[in-house]
Computed example of a mutant assay.
Amino acid sequence: MLTDMHIAIVGGDARQLEIIRKLSEQDGKLSLIGFDQLDDGFAGANKHSFDTLNPASVDAVVLPVSGMNNEGEVESIFSKNKIILREEWLDKTPGHCVLYTGISNNLMKNMAKRTGKKLVELFERDDIAIFNSVPTAEGTLMMIIQNTNITIHGSKIIVSGFGRTGMTIARTLKALGADVEVAANEGDLRARAFEMHMESYPLKELAQRVRDKDVIVNTIPAKIFTADILSKMPAHTLIVDVASKPGGTDFRYAEKRGIKALLAPGLPGIVAPKTAGKIIANILADLLKEQLETEKGGNS
């Protein structure tokens, strides 16, 4: 239980509601920032702003999956107000206060370092990434079905990247009868693709391999699909880029060529926010309990 632990939950989307619900059930004391338009009531949760919440009382700050932008602004679908996490506010939280986020940027990392706060990037964890790969794969299927006029069964598909997300997507597409190829530079990942009966090759071969493909699914957050590679694709090829922003595709050139290229980061929060929220909430609750036990041990 998280009794008497004061947690500030800041901004976000529908996934945050599952986090609020879970931590409320664990008897945490919750302060909600960026939820002024939320009608739901949660036991032990009160709405605040950074101006009305005393930072000295906060044991943990929970940011949404998207973290914050380079100006410190935190997105929230439950507020029309601009929500900015300022270093001055964070600096006034206790030394044991932990900053939890889905992903981070240099601003957040530097802010945590300068204020002496521990930063936990949830989406760097294998467990969350693997759990999240399931709704990501389902969302990818949805986008392929909605944006093509052929069946997945029998279609020729490349999945670029064969990490925690790419592996689940490739396995799901193959199970539906697609001819799936894997592009990855890591030899061990290509070996795993071979074991799963999928042809694989390094990224440098993409220019030759894309010539007859119906669908490309990119999971690599780096510019993989350059103008040179896109120029080799058939015009009917669909690209679904699920890598984090800005993705791994030259979207400007794709549009110029008439290739439909869709940037779709955060699919779990779009297609299955309740499930995606529960995944994060369960892991976060465990981490907060560990934090609480560490604090108790340090105070004993």
Rank of each mutant, 00 (worst) to 15 (best):
Gly67Pro: 10
Met68Arg: 14
Gly72Gln: 06
Lys29Met: 10
Gly67Leu: 13
Gly34Pro: 05
Asp36Ser: 10
Ala60Thr: 11
Leu30Ala: 05
Asp27Tyr: 11
Ala45Asn: 07
Phe35His: 07
Ala56Lys: 08
Phe50Gln: 11
Pro55Gln: 07
Asp27His: 14
Gly72Cys: 03
Asp40Ile: 02
Asn69Pro: 14
Ile77Trp: 00
Thr52Gln: 05
Asn70Tyr: 04
Asp39Trp: 00
Gln37Glu: 10
Thr52Glu: 10
Ser79Lys: 03
Ala60Tyr: 03
Val65Tyr: 13
Ala60Lys: 11
Ser79Val: 01
Gly72Ala: 09
Gly28Ile: 13
Leu63Asn: 04
Asp51Met: 08
Asp40Gln: 15
Ser57Gly: 13
Phe35Met: 01
Lys29Arg: 15
Ser79Trp: 03
Phe78His: 10
Ser49Leu: 11
His48Phe: 14
Gly72Ile: 10
His48Arg: 13
Leu53Met: 08
Asp36Val: 11
Ala56Val: 15
Ser57Trp: 00
Asp39His: 09
Phe78Glu: 04
Asp59Thr: 00
Ala45Gln: 05
Phe35Val: 08
Ser66Cys: 04
Asn46Leu: 12
Ala45Met: 04
Asn46Phe: 14
Phe50Leu: 03
Thr52Ser: 15
Asn46Ser: 11
Gly67Trp: 12
Gly41Met: 03
Asp51Trp: 02
Gly67Arg: 00
Asp40Tyr: 07
Ala60His: 05
Phe78Gly: 05
Lys47Cys: 03
Phe35Thr: 12
Ser79Met: 07
Ala45Gly: 06
Phe50Ala: 04
Asp36Glu: 14
Ser76Met: 06
Leu32Thr: 05
Asn69Ser: 06
Lys47Glu: 01
Asp36Leu: 01
Asp51Pro: 00
Asp40Trp: 06
Gly67His: 02
Phe42Ala: 04
Gly72Tyr: 08
Leu38Ile: 01
Ala45Glu: 06
Lys47Trp: 02
Val62Leu: 12
Ser57Tyr: 00
Val61Leu: 13
Gln26Trp: 02
Asn46Ile: 15
Leu32Met: 06
His48Val: 00
Leu32Ala: 09
Met68Ala: 11
Ala43Tyr: 11
Val61Trp: 00
Lys47Val: 03
Glu73Gln: 12
Val58Asn: 05
Val62Gln: 09
Ser79Leu: 06
Glu73His: 10
Gly72Lys: 06
Leu63His: 07
Phe78Asp: 03
Leu63Trp: 06
Glu71Ile: 08
Asp36Tyr: 00
Ile77Cys: 04
Glu73Tyr: 10
Asp40Ser: 12
Ala56Pro: 00
Ile33Cys: 12
Gln26Glu: 15
Asn69Lys: 12
Phe35Tyr: 15
Gly44His: 03
Asn54Arg: 08
Asn46Val: 15
Gln37Lys: 15
Asp39Cys: 02
Gln26Tyr: 08
Glu73Phe: 10
Val58Ser: 09
Ala45Thr: 02
Lys29His: 09
Ser76Asp: 01
Phe78Leu: 07
Met68Ser: 06
Leu30Lys: 10
Asp27Leu: 07
Glu73Leu: 03
Ser79Cys: 03
Ser76Gly: 02
Val58Cys: 12
Phe50Met: 04
Glu73Trp: 05
Ser49Arg: 05
His48Cys: 11
Leu30Ile: 03
Leu53Lys: 06
Phe50Cys: 07
His48Thr: 01
Pro55Cys: 12
Thr52Ile: 12
Met68Pro: 01
Val65Phe: 12
Glu75Lys: 12
His48Leu: 01
Phe78Trp: 14
Gly72Leu: 04
Pro64Ile: 14
Ala43His: 12
Lys47Asp: 06
Asp59Leu: 13
